[in-house]
Nucleic acid binder design. Sequence first.
RNA 1: GGUCGGUUCGUCUAGGGGUUAGGACGUAUCCCUUUCACGGAUAAAACACGGGUUCGAUUCCCGUACCGACUACCA
Length: 512
Amino acid sequence: MSKEVRVRFAPSPTGPLHIGGVRTALYNYLFAKKMGGKFLLRIEDTDQTRFVPGAEEYIQESLAWLGISPDESPWNPGDCGPYRQSERKPSYMQYALDLVEAGHAYYAFDTSEELEAMRERLEAARVVQPQYNNITRTQMKNSLTLSEDEVKAKLAAGEPYVIRVKIPRNEEVRLNDMIRGWVMVHTSTLDDKVLMKSDGMPTYHLANIVDDHLMNITHVIRGEEWLPSAPLHVLLYKYFGWEDTMPEFAHLPLLLKPDGNGKLSKRDGDKLGFPVFPINWENKENGETAAGFREQGYLPDAFLNFLSFLGWNPGDEREIFSLEELIKAFSVERIGKSGTKFDIAKAKWYNEQYLRAKSNPELAEYVISGASADGITILPETAEAIVSLTKERVTFPADLWQECKFVVTSPAEFDEAIASKRWNADAVTVLTAYAELLEGYTGAYDAEKAKAMLGETAEAKEIKLGKVMQAVRLAITGVGVGPDLMEIFAILGTEEVAKRIRFALASLEVIG
RNA sequence: GGUCGGUUCGUCUAGGGGUUAGGACGUAUCCCUUUCACGGAUAAAACACGGGUUCGAUUCCCGUACCGACUACCA
């Protein structure tokens, strides 16, 4: 009988979650759902000095936006609470003491000055790697070098101390990573990491082992930056006697900067020209806003689809996957090993695909709200007409309105570059004649009719329509690019088209 | 520096002892369109390097190079 799969996403609330973290959460979610298990969220707030207000809510909102909300979390607790490490504080010390008792950990009383002095001493002696380990601990103030009475006295006197793990001198630690296979590390390269800090809080290393055990976590899926400390974690499972239920590990490849130098970090922000956060983040300290994908107009499904392909692929040639389909197709075996550069062009492409898949009435809402933000009230029919004109050519919902503003606001000025190239005598001739024609016309007017009439006008003047089309577009919209012009004519109607032509004729200088 | 990890088109990747090394994004060209796009077609574009093993290696092994992570009383 196999146990229920339980995975956790365990961010620390030190600021906004960046997309690497979001991808980790997503893979955890996909794996849990694929296996019919549970996805939990645990807040790792053991560093009280780095706590940032609002970060927890940010995490919650980001996951909710993407539709990958946890089954158990601080806000939706299951049977393994609390889901915030700060609230689990009372339980950790005993575990650390058990380790001391068993000889796998010890008290250390060294002050930060003494630690600094030790590092300097070692550096002076050209020790390449100054660390608190099985050699240097013999020269420090700890329960291994002090007598039992001295230790008791210090403890009784309330002297600050930490508890460090006692890494064995000569052992090989093996770890079978689900993505990387066997990883072996010799304990001589490990240091005696602090397990309990002097403020009474555990470090990540202790807390994550204790909590994963207590919360029945079966698989730890996390970023590659944790791989170097994974052997320590394996050792801790062994010392606690929890080897039988030790979770399996999967260390995800890193998300890299587009230039390939280093992992994508929170600081990269929009200085790289794209967001690195799922949703906007207001920095309360400096009042700055870090851009989020949501606010930039990325659709959650598109973003999720894009993110899922950063380091994973289904093994066939499909590209578009709903969340349901991702769950079905997902497997840890198909996660790659190498770091992944972040390519915003692909994200845009995904967004376009998802945008076009939406219905016109749905998209019309974006146009209506875009217009209303500009103080313009627009009819649903007009909004839908704009949508059908534009949806095939935009990336973001907001573009729908931006690209078609001129439908409801006639141009006040005209693109200089186009005017200087295209506003010639032929254009003026055709446009003047077309305006006259429209002004005397009262029949039906649709895109086809508009085109036919324009064609006839040009033909009558013996001018090729193609030669003057850009100028016609300029007169009507003020710019050189945009949706199908004849469709725009139809939406505008004869009167408005004629009016705009007259205005352009009066405003623009004819070239050469 | 040390430890660990990684390396297939510019990017995301498929593949795997014998393949014309496949797809997608992006780029370019052409077609469609008397406008703008969409769309369609085509093209350029990759197995880091050196040794081994083998009839044969991009694929397996070993080195080298390069890239990255880690190296806190941070996670």
